[in-house]
Design a protein around this nucleic acid. Structure first.
Lengths: 232, 232
DNA sequence: TCATGATTTTTGTGATAACAAAATTATGAA
DNA sequence: TTCATAATTTTGTTATCACAAAAATCATGA
């Protein structure tokens, strides 16, 4: 388990290879981060099973795992849904992100090589380009890759998978307002500051930059969520 | 899911009520924290199922969940075992504990009432008494309760369950050397400092005390583990 | 004694069916 | 309409079985 970390995403309907439970898990997970389902959408075992063309057992296992991770929520003994916007949950996730991603950043900084810096620079360029061309989905994807390229440096596998679960949790509940969220040149300044500090091998400076990035994202997401909630 | 938080432990073989998966989960979990199994002990689905007198499905689900939480480890495609002593894992868990429990402490401090302070004082007295009478198991239990009484104050449910998973992970791998670990008046000074700072409503002071407690525990556990590893 | 290959046993996975409980829909009265 | 209740459908849970793959055991030869 915990093969979360280095999976390169697969664009379309991948053929089930390996354990069907894992296939079901990553399928639902991808649909969640792509915003296929609206908040409140029900995910009954049999429907998921039929959709993915697997039996009930793998579907059940995948759903349970996602509930456990917080990417889906149980609102009744027999009803699992995609989570609604929830500012308290967003706040909690953000606080945990600051603590955990801050830790990973600081610990990883000293292990950074030139390769890493190059990769980060390349990623940042891709992000900027994607934003200019309004390909928000790509921008979000590379933004995630930027963060995790740093977090992977510290070689703490469980820390990494815990952070991934947090991203998934936020992504599941807030994906549908990512477009408006991404509008404002998301995180460019913070990313560049992080890279510079990384070159200087200054752990607390890198951490500060990343924390700023997280907080900026939180503020923007919160604002978008509040406006959305007001409108409804 | 995540009914982790406020379960009062049940001393003996509880009767399966509610979902059998949950029953299996808490049974194994309790056995793990009680140190019933030596590190390296295999936990095959069918054996667990037979032991708990449930079908294979609930046993499978419980085991998978514990693997996911890190309380059990997979060492092969078909073999999960109780984890061995692993100093790197202990270090990683400690770093995460410092980040997360520090967060919970700081956030909870301002919400503390007099009731809480009284409860903490009572717990600390129980701990000291248990240690004097060499009832280490009781001391460990109340020590955990002490910590979580503080962590619960911030009302961040997912943060809490993540912390619980960390305790379980450390407990599963290191339980068998808790006696030697607990010998030295574990944490008394730090706990008292935390209580005082809590009365003063000084978040960073409470956090510092709790972090000290975590670090002291880490050092002692590490030392005991190193000696154990050398002896073998 | 130890390594290596073959054989047997064990084990995880996934499909399926039965059951009880929950969720939904229909019904009826105020 | 609105609310409570009854009927019906949906749904999660669990046990069981078959199968393939892994693990353990045994046999063989150096």
């Amino acid at each position: 388990m915990n093969d979360n970390t280095t999976e390169e995403e697969s664009s379309a309907s991948e053929l089930p290879s390996g354990r069907l439970s894992d296939f079901a898990y990553s399928s639902i997970k991808e649909q969640l981060t792509r915003g296929v389902y609206k908040p409140g959408h029900k995910l009954p075992i049999r429907s998921v099973a039929e959709m993915l063309k697997v039996g009930a057992t793998p579907a059940r296992e995948a759903i349970n795992r996602l509930v456990f991770e917080g990417a889906l929520v149980m609102v009744g003994p027999k009803t699992v849904i995609v989570p609604h916007l929830d500012l308290a949950a967003l706040y909690e996730a953000t606080q945990m992100r600051l603590a955990l991603e801050g830790l990973a950043t600081e610990r990883g900084t000293l292990c950074a090589t030139n390769d890493v810096v190059d990769k980060l620079l390349a990623l940042q360029e891709k992000i900027t380009l994607s934003l200019d061309e309004k390909r928000y989905s790509d921008a979000l994807h590379d933004n995630k890759e930027f963060h995790f390229t740093i977090y992977r440096l510290c070689e703490m596998p469980h820390l990494l998978s815990t952070i991934e679960a947090l991203w998934l949790r936020v992504g599941a509940a807030f994906h549908d307002l990512y477009p408006e969220f991404a509008e404002a040149k998301y995180g460019v300044h913070n990313h560049l500051a992080a890279i510079e500090a990384l070159v200087d091998k200054d752990p607390s400076a890198v951490r500060a930059a990343m924390e700023n990035d997280i907080r900026d994202g939180y503020r923007r997401l919160k604002k978008a969520a509040q406006e959305r909630l007001k409108r409804e």
